[in-house]
Design a protein around this nucleic acid. Structure first.
Lengths: 225, 225
DNA sequence: TGACTCCTTATGAATTTGGTAATTTATGAA
DNA sequence: TTCATAAATTACCAAATTCATAAGGAGTCA
């Protein structure tokens, strides 16, 4: 997990850095608010740990700036300012959690993981390699294997398969497939989609029952797995 | 914001309920874990506030169960158990935040808003998913489940169900259904609507009493939930 | 040319649809 | 309550729609 720590007190920064590092986190440290904002803007951190009292730009300001920039990286405020007003202000500024110093390391870790978990839940899509039973698709190399045997797909077939896989477990209308895979916006007088679905089914089916691409009569197709 | 509060102490539940209500939250209260789990499973809450010490099913267990069910509603633990071990355990069980009693109302509110804000950012599936008791309808994927079993609906049946759900708790005349679902503006000499309402009833009914689609004699039908 | 891709057309098969009519249930007056 | 009538439900079937598949033409490229 990539973590940005913005903390002006070198001693504290060092302790946190060391502690998290030992537990497999990848930490970057910024010693002031401006540097922190710059680093946060230019890189893709999983979580940002922010002290509030910082030279230059306060943690609160930094947080607001990031949110204005539509940067939604989860932010954990880690500070000694423990009044309710401070906490509420931090959360309302766009923070996601607020932990008071002094803190137990194990709690910091649990809260970081919690913030990251929520983020991870919505990624998963952009994998380069998709394995659906014995069907393996590598979007990067554009190679497709069934039962470890390479399958030759034409480019149209591959695009169709890719579209199905990226929209799996959802009924997709022929119209939508035509638009997204063929780039055709009208013309419903064609049955290319049906024909290519048929090609694909033949190519990606294996000895076992192949029911990956299912027809939903009157609605379209669904890639189910 | 729809909030589920699971708290066995009636006095505490009442205070929180009242306080949040006054601030425009829509609160449902469960007084024990089992009821809480049931309510959380059947409805779509924005946030769940969980006490940990509960009769029957502990808040921790409830949280784990929900996550197993792939229910990702943000969970805020609200409890007097303030040791670091408890906090870490709560977060690792799938909780998203942990607030200690006694707490300031304004902080609870800020934390609820923070959890909800993150959720709103990913309005992916949730918005398109309707849960009515054990009937789950996903308008995006066009999949319908009853008691977690997928139901196969024809496209006309699905359109009819969608129309009912989008107009739930309102009496709808056969004429209106014919117009909106079939696109027929005249021809009242048919009873297709009656026929399809019955197809639907059969398909979406479960072992329990199924009274979702009710007949209103002389007026039409009503989808009640 | 010949191998390959893409798309169209044509055909029969499978599924859905909407009407009819028989049966069951509900309503209201006596 | 009972009975006549209206309304709702169900079963059935033929027509219409929708699909799967095969065959073949046009275009491309080596």
């Amino acid at each position: 997990m990539k973590v940005l720590l913005v903390e002006d007190e070198p001693h504290v920064a060092s302790i946190i850095n060391k502690g998290l590092n030992e537990n497999g986190y990848n930490i970057s440290v910024a010693l002031d608010g401006v540097t922190g904002l710059e680093m946060a803007s230019k890189n893709n951190f999983d979580v940002i740990i922010l002290d509030i009292m910082l030279p230059g730009l306060s943690g609160m300001e930094l947080c607001k700036q990031l949110r204005i920039q539509k940067n939604n990286t989860p932010i954990l405020f880690l500070t000694a300012l423990g009044t309710t007003e401070n906490i509420v202000a931090g959360l309302n500024a766009g923070g996601d959690d607020y932990l008071l110093k002094p803190f137990k390391f194990i709690e910091l870790e649990a809260r970081l993981n919690t913030l990251n978990r929520r983020k991870q839940m919505h990624i998963n899509e952009e994998e380069d390699l998709q394995k659906i039973d014995t069907l393996h698709i590598n979007f990067k190399t554009k190679l497709v294997h069934v039962d470890d045997v390479e399958i030759a797909l034409t480019s149209t077939e591959f695009r169709l398969l890719e579209f199905f896989v990226r929209n799996k477990n959802r009924v997709i209308s022929r119209m939508e497939i035509l638009e997204k895979v063929w780039g055709i916006d009208f013309n419903m007088g064609t049955n290319v989609v049906d024909v290519y679905v048929n090609y694909l089914r033949k190519k990606i089916s294996n000895n076992k029952s192949n029911k990956l691409i299912q027809t939903v009569v009157g609605m379209g197709y669904i890639f189910k797995c």
